[in-house]
Design a protein around this nucleic acid. Structure first.
Lengths: 214, 214
DNA sequence: CATGGGAAAACGTGATCACAAATTCCACCT
DNA sequence: AGGTGGAATTTGTGATCACGTTTTCCCATG
């Protein structure tokens, strides 16, 4: 039964980590949801050891919170914390967009528009997870062009921290509105207008998150 | 020999994590230094398990790099990566300083001045570790007043990633100059001048890191 | 003297177990 | 009926082991 380091396929703890990370970032887990080592291990057919490493990694990234007794759960963010994370997004994402702008050719803009269409469909279907997923995909696709892996890693960590909260907030702030500001982002990209792009990204980021904390 | 979760004292993996984190952030470890589970465990009188958790956590924070075979070492950053991390510092730290400004009373400014004195002493003694430590303490003491724990966590993660590199670079960029811009930061704090504070912090941050990448 | 190959040592990964703390649950008492 | 105490279950932590890979080291070969 001992499966040690494999040559090609990824390690069990890494697969578990990726699986959980995606669930959290896409809002498939509600805030306050508890995760146990034995439960996760049993659910994925592995022992406690890989589960422990995956959880430790996610806790280190702020995706999960650690109670005083060592128990792990998805975070229930305070309004202050949400505002702070929104401020970080508003600070970093315009910079990433601006760095991507010179490299944003037509093919990329078309791909962004396609993702935006999927996003609108998710809104129409009232599918919270698909909405969050396509929304983040829109931003990530743009920021990948910035050639700034460290910045991208930081911003993804922040998305990760907001995952469960964004899910819980969907339906309260998102009624049936399509992603308005995404069209402004696309227009600014086409025009090569950096100030307009920075403003559009900043507005898009703060718009969804500013309402709930008030 | 089994020492399980203690009621009061922190867990072994947490102590190990803190110890390593401080060593890395303060530049006590040079880039490329390898760290092994058995070696760390033996050095700290614990088994592989806590060492594994501590390393996994530090890797998740970007403080250590993971080779394709799973081996862990302090990072050897490329110039592009260093510039990017410097850009993140230049983006976030002025914001933290600006948020701390309204709450920065005289007692805080005096403490900052005292830390600055220790910093100057470290420069005089050519003590790289003490220089890095007091320099970060100067910034952290100010930013703590910003009441922004998420931003502080992000910026500390970035300091952590730069730790070994800053150590390796000390002596190349740091000749015998005292921290010039720290005095500008203190002056802006005393004057309550936010634009000047933002500029001083930004300049201080970029000054030390911009030279080496060119 | 440089180089390639093979044995040996070192390493990460995952499973399992023991232990103590934390949590849960239910019967019992007020 | 509503809390209360204690037992039973659940949980995280750390140690240890086996396994297969990776790295290191050294000697033999060109």
């Amino acid at each position: 039964m001992t499966l040690s380091a494999r040559p090609i396929e990824t390690a069990a703890h890494d697969r578990l980590y990726r699986s959980l990370r995606q669930q959290i970032m896409h809002g498939e887990l509600l805030p306050g949801q508890a995760l146990t080592l034995r439960g996760l291990g049993k659910a994925h057919g592995v022992s406690m050891t890989p589960a422990r490493e995956a959880l430790r990694r996610l806790v280190a990234e702020g995706a999960l919170t650690l109670s005083s007794s060592g128990r792990v759960a998805t975070p229930e963010l305070s309004n202050d914390r949400i505002e702070e994370l929104a401020a970080l997004r508003a600070l970093i994402e315009p910079e990433l967009a601006a760095r991507a702008l010179p490299r944003a050719h037509l093919a990329l803009i078309d791909r962004l528009a396609a993702i935006n269409t999927s996003n609108a469909e998710a809104v129409a279907k009232q599918d919270a997870v698909a909405y969050i997923r396509t929304n983040l995909e829109f931003h990530r696709t743009l920021y990948l062009r910035a050639q700034a892996p460290a910045m991208l890693a930081v911003i993804e960590t922040i998305w990760l921290q907001l995952g469960p909260t964004m899910r819980a907030l969907y339906g309260r702030v998102q009624r049936n509105e399509p992603p308005r500001h995404h069209r402004m982002i696309l227009a600014a990209l086409r025009a090569g207008d950096e100030p307009a792009l920075r403003l559009a990204v900043r507005t898009d980021v703060t718009h969804g998150l500013r309402h709930l904390a008030g």
